[in-house]
């Protein structure tokens, strides 16, 4: 970035206002973000009763102990699958919807936009409840609908083989409005003259989208991806409402979030373990940090942002 020519103020006067304006945000951020993070790190370096400093041995336990590693690994694999399903379905779907809503011939665009975005604003408790009811074998409408469509109804949310994809689909249904909104905003920013020029050159609608619009909104693809990544690796609430903290059946819906919850807070007869809980939390944090850095250092440098 180029240095902007700055006006030199009177040298003798210290610029206190900068500190004053920064202070409230800095203070708040330190109290609610930086301090808890450092304290989490501190706790993860102590023994479970908080009495002895044990270095990285909690991390060692998490990664090597047969009491910990297989369960952490399972939660990690599930989370990655959960994330991939969002990347493969939610974001392309968001892009598709945004592209459709961007079309000038569509009537009632704002109605569609509002409807598609509205699940995002619902509480996860409501979303979990509604979908459990829809899919319920006892009271739900899913059995009737599947009959009508000729699909064999199964209690998808309750089967080991299908529960994680089902939860992921519910989450996609809820959050598809976010990538849609991001892409719509990006598409709106594409200048008309460029599109007109392309049209004059004889580009079809298909070519117009993939050759002109898509390269222009590529930075947004990156932002949406990283937001999905952060959101999914922190995911917890929907699984907790729909499947409980034990994330059944047979831990098939256990995400890093639910694994952390059980470790830190305990569950039923399992007592909460602050040291191991914070260790898990730090590892989740590091995974997210690493992913975000990858995005900042690799993607953001490689992707070409066009000045419009």
């Amino acid at each position: 970035m180029k240095e902007l020519p700055m006006l030199r103020p009177n040298k003798s006067r210290p610029r206190w206002h900068i500190a004053v304006f920064l202070a409230p945000a800095l203070l708040l951020y330190s109290i609610v973000m930086v301090f808890p993070l450092l304290d989490t790190l501190r706790l993860s370096l102590f023994s479970s009763d908080g009495a002895n400093f044990v270095g990285v041995s909690n991390y060692q336990r998490l990664f090597t102990d047969s009491q910990w590693w297989p369960y952490f690994w399972r939660a990690l694999k599930n989370t990655v699958l959960f994330f991939l399903l969002h990347m493969l379905l939610q974001n392309p779907l968001g892009l598709l919807l945004a592209a459709l809503l961007d079309s000038k011939n569509l009537r009632g665009r704002s109605i569609y936009r509002t409807l598609l975005f509205s699940p995002t604003m619902l509480s996860f408790v409501i979303v979990g409840f509604i979908w459990q009811l829809i899919l319920s074998p006892t009271w739900g409408i899913a059995p009737a609908i599947s009959d009508f469509l000729g699909i064999r109804y199964r209690p998808w949310l309750g089967l080991e083989s299908t529960s994680l994809p089902t939860v992921a689909l519910i989450s996609i249904w809820q959050f598809v409005g976010i990538p849609m909104l991001f892409f719509m905003t990006a598409l709106l920013a594409v200048p008309q003259d460029i599109l007109e020029a392309a049209r004059v050159d004889g580009a079809s609608a298909w070519q117009l989208f993939w050759r002109v619009k898509f390269p222009l909104i590529l930075p947004t693809v990156g932002i949406v991806s990283i937001l999905t990544f952060i959101g999914n690796f922190n995911a917890f609430d929907l699984v907790y409402t729909a499947k409980g903290a034990l994330a059944g059946p047979n831990f098939s819906t256990d995400l890093l979030g639910t694994f952390f919850y059980r470790t830190f807070y305990g569950f039923q007869l399992q007592l909460g373990d602050y040291a191991m809980g914070t260790t898990v939390a730090m590892v989740i944090f590091l995974i997210i940090l690493f992913g975000s850095l990858l995005y900042l250092l690799v993607w953001q440098r490689k992707v070409v942002s066009y000045e419009l």
Partner: peptide
């Protein structure tokens, strides 16, 4: 087990602020 300041510990879990 000694459990000191559980509320503080709960707040300390930055990554799951929803839970705290």
């Amino acid at each position: 087990m000694v459990r000191k300041w559980p509320w503080k510990l709960a707040c300390a879990s930055l990554l799951t602020t929803v839970l705290a």
